[in-house]
Nucleic acid binder design. Structure first.
Lengths: 141, 141
DNA sequence: CTGGACCCTGGAGTATACTCCAAGGTCAAG
DNA sequence: CTTGACCTTGGAGTATACTCCAGGGTCCAG
């Protein structure tokens, strides 16, 4: 059994974050000392690692709360967890597609700008941003 | 000259958003009616389009405020805008890389789960999330 | 027994980009 | 003149994941 500072050191998150996770129902101290200090054990550390790794996979704390609940349920099965992982992957791929669209839009803008020394009045990038269709190429006069 | 509702209809953003943009120094009405109504012109519409397209490229409102400033400056040149576009593209590519890492981590988890019907106690995904190294494959016993 | 390191609670603040609301004034049609 | 659509301001609320703070208690070494 160790206090919050030890768990923080062990897991690499701050005391404040641990208390915040408790407030968010992600973790509960294994026990409390007579003085009211939070006391944790190895399972607490595993739980925090779980949270950190799930975050690194893109899960939000709300989703992680669910995963942790599944983890504790006897009747839950591996498939429940797998389903969530697959769903999250789809969400992430979706986001990646959105960002690639941004990246492409920026490419067009950057290409459009042939001459860096032109004054802004004639800036192709600015003109393109004012136009309706971002991906349309510039018209030659 | 038209009122806020017309500009909203013309540009596809809400009245509230237009007022919010004003508060954020992104746009100012061209004029005010005697009753204090905001009045806008074609340049206002161009400005809002500019904002929307810049957002679609991933720029934040704070960054767009800067772009709009450049747009109004005589001494600014096309290169200033281009630099910002290139910078933003790098940021976005960075984010895409981070998300691809998440996607890959999820792939490992999904792969690890060979049998969906297993109880959570033996769930490989949950075990992997508790482990330190997410990308490490499961050890055979 | 004192100093410093640690812990507690409750609440406020951060960033981003809106969105909604109340209470009230304005305008044009019928 | 009334009705309904429109406009005004100012302020609060949303989501996410923390972070920081004040004011106070606890614990242990020297």
């Amino acid at each position: 059994m160790f206090t919050i500072g030890k768990l923080a050191g062990l897991t690499g998150v701050s005391n404040d974050t641990l208390r915040y996770y408790e407030q968010e129902d992600l973790i509960r101290p294994a026990d409390k000392s007579p003085a009211g200090y939070r006391l944790y054990d190895q399972e607490s550390a595993r739980r925090i690692h779980f949270i950190k790794h799930a975050q690194a996979c893109g899960f939000t704390l709300a989703e992680i709360r669910e995963l942790l609940m599944l983890r504790g349920l006897d009747q839950a099965c591996c498939g429940d967890v797998r389903t969530r992982a697959i769903e999250k992957k789809l969400q992430i791929e979706q986001k990646i597609r959105a960002m690639r669209a941004m990246s492409r839009a920026l490419d067009h803008l950057i290409e459009d700008c042939a001459d860096e020394t032109k004054p802004v009045k004639e800036c192709a990038i600015i003109a393109a941003l004012e136009r309706a269709n971002l991906s349309a190429p510039i018209q030659s006069p």
